[in-house]
Computed example of a mutant assay.
Amino acid sequence: MPTMLLSLVSVIVTLWVSWAHGQGRTCDFPEIKHGSIYEEHRYKQAFPVAPGKYFYYSCDRSFASPSQSLWTRITCTEDGWSPTPRCLRQCFFPWVKHGRSASSGQTHQEGDTVPVVCDEGYSLPLHQSSITCGERGWSMPPMCSRTGSRRKCGRPPTINNGDITTFPSANYAPGDSVQYRCQAYYKLQGNRILTCRDGEWSEPPKCLEACVTSEEMMEKHNIQLRWRQNKKLYIESDDTVEFTCRRGYRAVSPRSAFRVTCRAGKLTYPTCE
């Protein structure tokens, strides 16, 4: 076979192989830690998908995408998902007891480091000069303690609808900690672990009341649960539930009202007639 013809055949084969290899590239379902694809229960069975296909994802409470958008678009490319779907922790920075910081009252994103200046005679634990926002929250409480002081703490503070997991002692040494838990159907908000620092306990958590929807309330509004068959459903605070009209009824409330969020133990029901 002439050299020129052999070279031409080699080029064609190389191009065909490259094309065939590119045709096989797909994107698997994106498992997003602390987040989820929009209505993933509908689309999950369609994976893997071809390049060019796009989806939207949102993050769980206290997390956000790098773009800070409520819904972030990701597109399947030959190199994978673009941008890479991520949900980063959001850390609210309160005021600093016995100190100050320019970040007081602001919310920071996972990976941010915040300088803290303590008052004279006070310091952060381990004499650190800053705290960092991590996946589980701040690396340490933003609290300055008196340098060299080793005062003990009394009994841990009580919280409504919750308690510590161990039998309380009369006093605790500096550095001792206790863990809180909420009663059934209550949602814990804040840090579940409290630490004794210079005679004072760190900020205790709260137990947020759950919402309950029953068959009687849904019949009153001519609605039913959209995705579940339960006649009675407990919903944690800040979680959402979707309703739809019962057969033969039409919506009176706006469409947005059928996706309801539990707020302090209360639900606002949509109505159909």
Results as ranks from 00 to 15, higher is better:
Pro157Glu: 05
His221Trp: 02
His127Gln: 10
Ser130Thr: 06
Cys182His: 04
Thr132Val: 03
Ser7Glu: 09
Tyr180Asn: 04
Met140Trp: 05
Ser58Ala: 13
Trp19Asp: 12
Trp138Arg: 04
Cys91Trp: 04
Lys152Asn: 11
Leu233Tyr: 13
Gly22Thr: 12
Glu31Thr: 14
His221Thr: 07
Leu233Asp: 14
Thr213Tyr: 01
Gln229Glu: 10
Gln224Met: 11
His41Gly: 04
Pro85Asp: 09
Cys118Ala: 00
Gln179Asn: 13
Gly22Ser: 14
Lys53Pro: 01
Tyr180Asp: 05
Pro270His: 08
Glu236Thr: 06
Ala64Glu: 12
Cys118Ser: 00
Ala257Met: 11
Thr84Glu: 08
Ser18Gln: 13
Tyr180Ala: 06
Pro48Asn: 07
Met140Val: 09
Ser214Cys: 02
Ser82Leu: 05
Thr158Arg: 14
Lys97Trp: 05
Glu215Asn: 09
Thr165Asp: 07
Pro254Glu: 04
His98Ala: 15
Ile164Gly: 07
Thr113Gly: 03
Glu242Lys: 11
Asn171Asp: 08
Ala264Ile: 10
Gly80Ser: 09
Cys27Trp: 00
Phe55Glu: 00
Ser58Thr: 15
Gly137Cys: 06
Ala170Gly: 08
Ser69Phe: 07
Asp238Thr: 15
Arg255Glu: 11
Tyr57Ile: 02
Ser7Cys: 14
Met143His: 15
Gly22Val: 07
Thr132Glu: 00
Ala184Ser: 08
Gln179Glu: 15
Gly35His: 03
Val116Phe: 02
Trp81Met: 02
Gly105His: 08
Glu216Val: 15
Cys91Thr: 05
Glu203Met: 11
Pro94Asn: 08
Met218Tyr: 09
Ile193Gly: 03
Gly248Leu: 09
Gln179Thr: 15
Cys153Ile: 10
Gln68Gly: 12
Arg86Lys: 12
His41Cys: 03
Arg155Trp: 04
Leu233Pro: 14
Lys206Asp: 01
Cys182Tyr: 00
Val117Trp: 07
Met4Phe: 15
Arg136Leu: 14
Ser123Leu: 04
Ala184Tyr: 14
Val9Gln: 01
